[in-house]
Design a binder for these strands. Structure first.
Lengths: 210, 210
DNA sequence: TTGTAAATAACCCTTTTGTGTGATATTTAT
DNA sequence: ATAAATATCACACAAAAGGGTTATTTACAA
């Protein structure tokens, strides 16, 4: 199994290289200080796994993940970084990173992570995994802080689907005047001036499911 | 640290109980064959961690997760099940499950999982973690398949914020007629009939960030 | 150079929206 | 039982939206 390393800190890079090279299972094919021309580096090395730092000068690891995964989706990429903010994390994941290990973890984590991706897993530091699962938590209740009634919600939903006042009236079997009255109340409750703004707010605040 | 177990298979339940009980760190406070009246069971046991099977007669583990997490979000729940289908997995995660371990994994996994949730992590079997990360990949698509131009996007965004045609014109320093023309083009490109529908579609398909 | 796409603008005309004001059932909660 | 929401309908009116058509300018690529 072959590994490529992208890490701009010389000491750390040497350390990782040594750590991995000392194993008889893995071989370090290349190590680099940034992701400049990364495609050719990957083509040359043909690594099974890439250890990717994020913060590197000129061409960083996020760029690297994006480029490599687009061309070689089968190459496993483990992010190895100090950053644990949501922004960078989810950007990397969306580009297809296979693992996300924080540098503050023991270096044995990195070694285990390599074995884990190779067996089809997705190694993550504890806090990272928690953050990822957090995103699946249902947005509790549509808290309806605006006191929109059921009828109003129904009408708002039809509006969202592009129904005109008249069509809404027909759909709900009520007069267009009633539709107007409902929408009037809705706009007032949502503190908006018009239908488009109401729709944007309703979707944005998850008052209705789309 | 105290544990409660929900598992209808008698043999397996005994095994888990023994496995955990043999440790001097953990104490099994209760073990049950289904999640009937689970709230009172949890109130009585006051467990730090719950091991939760999914497939149990009458009241299953999915129901259990939902009920317990709603009242006691701080109790850690590890799903321990044979099922690895997306449906059950993401349902449990949406209810707030903290870990998801497959029964086919070594039983030491379960033991490690308990330690991991207690230290704030989110233990998952390898395949599960991969499945979870997979969902972030397809989210990546701000790919403007409708060929909306920059100018059009800007105008669409103003519309979303409740600007009238006239206000958009003033904001962009163009005549209302031009605004009209742009919106006309936008509606055509998005295959919608009116502004509200366009806004709903634009937000829904992430054509613009809100 | 010519052609295509984007942005700009105007005119006409109909329908739709949004608001103000008022009123009457119907349901729900106290 | 009674008060408070909620849902219903109506009328008038100004403003806005949306559709059709045509045209000019700019920029960039074939």
């Amino acid at each position: 199994m072959t590994i490529s390393i992208f890490e701009d800190n010389d000491k750390l890079r040497d350390l990782i290289e040594m750590l991995i090279g000392s194993s008889d299972e893995f071989e370090v094919k290349g190590s680099y200080t940034n992701t400049y021309d990364i495609l050719n580096k990957v083509i040359k090395d043909q690594p099974d796994v890439i250890i990717m730092d994020i913060d590197m000068p000129e061409h960083d690891g996020i760029e690297g993940v994006q480029i490599v995964k687009k061309k070689f989706p089968d190459v496993k990429i483990i992010m190895h970084t100090v950053f644990d903010d949501d922004d960078r994390l989810f950007t990397c994941l969306s580009y297809g990173a296979d693992g996300y290990i924080l540098k503050k973890d023991a270096s044995s984590s990195l070694f285990n992570a390599i074995k884990e991706v190779l067996s089809g897993g997705a190694p993550m530091s504890a806090g990272i995994a928690t953050r990822v699962l957090q995103t699946f938590r249902k947005v509790e209740k549509p808290k309806n802080e605006y006191n929109i009634t059921e009828r109003e919600k129904q009408i708002l939903e039809l509006l969202t689907r592009g129904f005109s006042y008249r069509m809404i009236g027909i759909e709900c079997s009520i007069s267009i005047e009633t539709v107007r009255r409902h929408l009037k109340n809705i706009y007032h409750k949502l503190h908006v001036q018009c239908g488009t703004e109401a729709v944007a707010k309703a979707i944005g605040e998850r008052l209705l499911m789309l």
